[in-house]
Every structure is written in structure tokens, then in C-alpha cells.
Design a protein around this nucleic acid. Structure first.
Length: 245
RNA sequence: AAAUAGACUGGU
């Protein structure tokens, strides 16, 4: 069982979600009892592989097998459903975990914000964000970055920037995900110049751009009718340590 | 506190 667990998790971490699921099934065929960690990592794999329905079935199955879902289980389940804007399921999971005596943590609360936003309920998402802060939850960079992205995806660019300023005010260090989300947000809002400025700022502050950064910039420049700049980004990749994909 | 959870792009 330990061997299976490790091999499965190695596949899961390297992005081979389908293979990890296969191994999990193999493990069960051999009547090896799955534990909470196996179930959690499988739910995550199924979600990442886009098989949310199967994840839900496995979630029911684990409960039937007497395996009690923990905070990570709920966090995984809520995140994969939130991505698709499946608000009802998220709400149901959210109630269920509280009935089970678990206390929602920040990843779970951000999943709620995410599903509200994706379901087109931005005001509710924004109030939940305020409420969480009032209740004294300490949000980290990941939470802030996700919220910036959620606002941007809802088309609320101004709020996205507000959240970014708040992150800075809290003394949190933006990372490459944060900058990428911001650049994307500014591009969508039609402000290619501001996006360029953020790109310069991230470099100035010692944050190394990655492939996502470059793809985002190239995309926004060409959409802004500035193919020269897009090409400039591309040629700038030459001689660097990032391979265009 | 063995191993498992949350964030970014390109018509996805």
C-alpha cells in the first residue's frame, strides 16, 4: 500500500493524472485498502483530468467505505467544482463540512468566492471576501492572487487592482502568479501600457517571468494591435532559459 | 504531525 501510494503521488505530482487514476484502480483490484490520503490525491487527479463527475462518485464511495472526509477532501472537492461555477454543489459541500464539525479554512472560503464569481454572482463574492477579512482570517498570497484573478475574470478590473494594492499594504510578497494574473487583468481591461509597466516592475523587484508571463504578454499585445511588441517579446526569449512552447 | 488539498496564459 505504501509503495502504491508513493508511485501514485509521483504520477499525480508530475501531471500524469490519468495514469495515477489507473494505478489507484489497480491498487483496489488487488484489495489494498485505500486511506484518506489516497482518496484525497485521487479526487484531485480526477478533478485535474476534467472528470468532475467521477470525483463526485469517488467522494460518495469513500464515505460509504467509512473513510471520513477531512478539510483537504472538502477543499479539493470545492475547488474542482468552483472552477466550473457549480455553485449548488459548492454550497452543499460547504454545509456538509460544517455539519461534520469541520471549520472552513481559507482555501475553502476562497473556493466559495470563486464559485460565486463564476456563477455570475460577483457582489456576493465580493461581500464574502469582506466578511472573511472582518472575521480575522489571515489570507496569504495564494488567496489574494486567486481573488485578483476571480475579479478579473468577472470583468471587475478595478476591484482586482484594489485587491492587489491590499496585498501590498499587508506586506505580502507578490509572486510570479500574482504578476501574471495582474498582467492578464490589465490586458483584458485594454490597458497594454499598464501591463507593460507591471512586467517591468516584476523584473525590477526580482521576480522572474515564466512562460505564462510571456504567453500572456504576446497575446495581449497582438490583441491590442501591437504585433511589433508581441514579436519583441518573442525574440526576447531567444538566448534566455525559457523555451517557447 | 510518513505520503495527499488552494492561484496565472495561449480561440482550452
Amino acid at each position: 500500500a505504501v509503495a502504491y501510494t508513493n508511485i501514485i503521488d509521483i504520477h499525480a505530482r508530475s501531471g500524469f493524472h490519468e495514469r495515477a487514476v489507473q494505478l489507484f484502480n489497480e491498487m483496489r483490484e488487488m484489495n489494498v485498502q485505500a486511506n484518506i490520503a489516497n482518496y484525497n490525491s485521487m479526487l484531485d487527479c480526477l478533478g485535474k483530468a476534467g472528470n468532475v463527475k467521477a470525483a463526485y462518485m469517488l467522494f460518495d464511495e469513500m464515505k460509504l467505505c467509512g473513510c471520513v472526509p477531512d478539510l483537504k477532501t472538502y477543499s479539493i472537492m470545492m475547488c474542482i467544482h468552483a472552477r466550473l461555477g457549480l455553485k449548488q454543489i459548492c454550497l452543499q459541500l460547504f454545509e456538509e463540512l460544517q455539519k461534520a464539525g469541520l471549520k472552513p479554512n481559507t482555501p475553502i472560503l476562497v473556493a466559495m468566492i470563486d464559485c460565486l464569481g463564476k456563477a455570475g454572482n460577483f457582489n456576493a463574492a465580493w461581500s464574502l471576501f469582506s466578511e472573511i477579512k472582518e472575521q480575522g482570517y489571515a489570507l496569504d498570497v495564494v488567496c489574494y492572487t486567486r481573488i485578483i484573478d476571480i475579479c478579473a475574470k468577472c470583468g471587475h478590473y478595478k476591484q482586482a487592482l484594489e485587491v492587489y494594492m491590499e496585498l501590498e499594504r499587508k506586506g505580502l510578497e507578490p509572486n510570479v502568479f500574482t504578476y501574471n494574473a495582474l498582467i492578464h487583468c490589465l490586458g483584458k481591461s485594454g490597458d497594454a501600457t499598464a501591463a507593460s509597466n507591471i512586467f517591468c516592475e516584476m523584473k525590477r523587484r526580482g521576480c522572474k517571468p515564466n512562460i505564462v508571463t510571456y504567453n500572456t504578454l504576446m497575446d495581449l499585445y497582438s490583441k491590442a494591435g501591437k504585433p511589433e511588441l508581441s514579436l519583441e517579446v518573442f525574440t526576447g526569449l531567444e538566448g534566455g532559459d525559457i523555451q517557447p512552447d
